[in-house]
Design a protein around this nucleic acid. Sequence first.
RNA 1: GGGGCCGUAGCUCAAUUGGAUAGAGUACCGGACUGUCGAUCCGGUGGUUGCGGGUUCGAAUCCCGUCGGCCUCGCCA
Length: 596
Amino acid sequence: MPIAYNKRTHLCGQLRAAQTGEQIILAGWVNTSRDHGGMTFVDVRDHTGITQLRFNPEVAPEAHKAARTLHNEDVIAVTGKVAHRGEWVNPKIPTGEIEIEVAEIDIINRCEPLPFQVNDPGDTSEDMRLRYRFLDFRRPEIQRIFRMRHAIAKAVRDYMDDNNFVEVETPFLTKSTPEGARDYLVPSRVRPGTFYALPQSPQIFKQLCMIGGFDRYAQIVRCFRDEDLRADRQPEFTQVDLEMAFVESGDVMAAVEGCVGKMFKAALDIDIDTPFPCITYEEAMDRFGCDAPDTRFGLELTDVTDIMKETDFKVFREAIENGGLVRCIVASGGEKLTRKVTDGLTEEIRGIGGTGLPLVKVSEDNGSLKFSTGVAKFLHPVCDRLCSAVGAKAGDTIFLMPGSRDEVGKYLHYVRTRLARILDLIPDDQWNLLWVLDFPLVVWDEEEKRWFSTHHPFTAPRDEDIPLMDTDPGKVRSKAYDLVLNGTEMAGGSIRIHNKDVQNKVFSLLGISEEEAHAKFEFLLDALRFGAPPHGGIAFGLDRWVMLMSKSASLRDVIAFPKTQRAVCPLTNAPTEVSQPQLDDLFLKLNLPPAK
RNA sequence: GGGGCCGUAGCUCAAUUGGAUAGAGUACCGGACUGUCGAUCCGGUGGUUGCGGGUUCGAAUCCCGUCGGCCUCGCCA
């Protein structure tokens, strides 16, 4: 019996007791059915919820007969009357006070046996879910994530519009840029042998927009990087990209704070405190060993180089004599730090390149503190000094790390975050936002023996540090700022160079020759010559924000059609081979490695 | 490119650690049932244990290779 599904009167999650007695039309998918031979119940579902349909053979024999043939995920429409459930109210669902006394049913489209159960909240493998993502989308939890994503994106657009940002679209078929990640390339048909690159970010285009007088630009835009994947890294991802003219760092940060506030309100109805706290790169590295610290818990690093100088422990002495240092973390809750756990940590440190994890346990003996286990025998002479310097008390464990500044930071940061999880110190439902400022402009790469941009080659140095570019480049601080949420870098930006001489100076520091700079950035250098205003901006990874806000475990959860770890789309199976004529059009010849 | 975990029915998992005909839930098919809401009850179909080799009297189980998924180091300004 055809039913005008386009005239449905309600969605499946809407009806309440107040509508009792009304004639309605519903349409949706069969979530479950319960056939008693006589009375048959079917739950019909759409994105708003489920409603129970009652098929009574004495009221509507034909509809009842049809209902008994239904399977999960059949598409149906029904007409009927809203009935109060009386003594059979189901408090578990919002529509549980009512049910539909069905008069007619239209079985619009039958569903074949499913590869997995849509209505099963249990764990289907991610593999399966992504292969049949359209079925996965029908689940309420997945709907929740993508509707949250929509709300966040809308909040961003509304905020940008309210604050006079102009959305300008930038090209996807663009030019390969030096440094940064590997590019995705697209061959040109009309200029044989040449390639476009998909943008890693619209960086230069948004700068050109500023130079062109847009004043404020914002775009929610796809970016592409051909690097190995991780749980929080996809080859194509979405950035909220913005740029502002005539600003200093604080202005961009304030704009971001306003935007992030709207995002939290829209996604979680949370009011975020502004301004966000700030910390310098230097301080972050000293206190946390990491430029994106998680401030939801303590376990901060303490420098104990001076004390360790006086021990006989060779490992520490040598590190210090070689210009290194010793820092430590003090953890309470020793009962959870069993030998097995600390041995495991030591193994993990070795796994990321370390040589070990010296530690001591603190205990009390006749009123005074003592060290035991681990490297205790080397540290007895400095026990009192060390304990008072780091505030250790009986029951604590002290994790020490000798080495260069970078090594100590890397390993203790690892230890710190692992301990936080082991000791259950990370509060749920806390959103610690933090600006990290004053990054070094460039870092020395020992392998390639040259300077690399910490941020990117267009980041402005702090004015007072410009002279250092000639004498001590590593000391030059940049006008860059990173936004960190709960220990994850969520946004990064900077004030850009608007002066061609400074830009050329940076290029030469990075070892980009004049010819190369000219070939690759002529348009930017040109623009800087023709009246470029001071400008700066930021970009944040929208996917990551949605991932954290929705408490998802993986970026794949918040991207509609994500790629697997080998960058394959499980739905379309892309990338796939193409035909010889397609290759011929592009003047491409394959040069494949020999088959194994 | 390196390290780790995993791969058994359409799906989610088990198989007493090398032993007999590889089981269960769910889905699917058939039957019973008038108030269920993860309906219930009875019966049934369904297997190249990812693939290829090897060890063994005997392999889902051990070894080697390979493919695929996930985590991770490198990489990702």
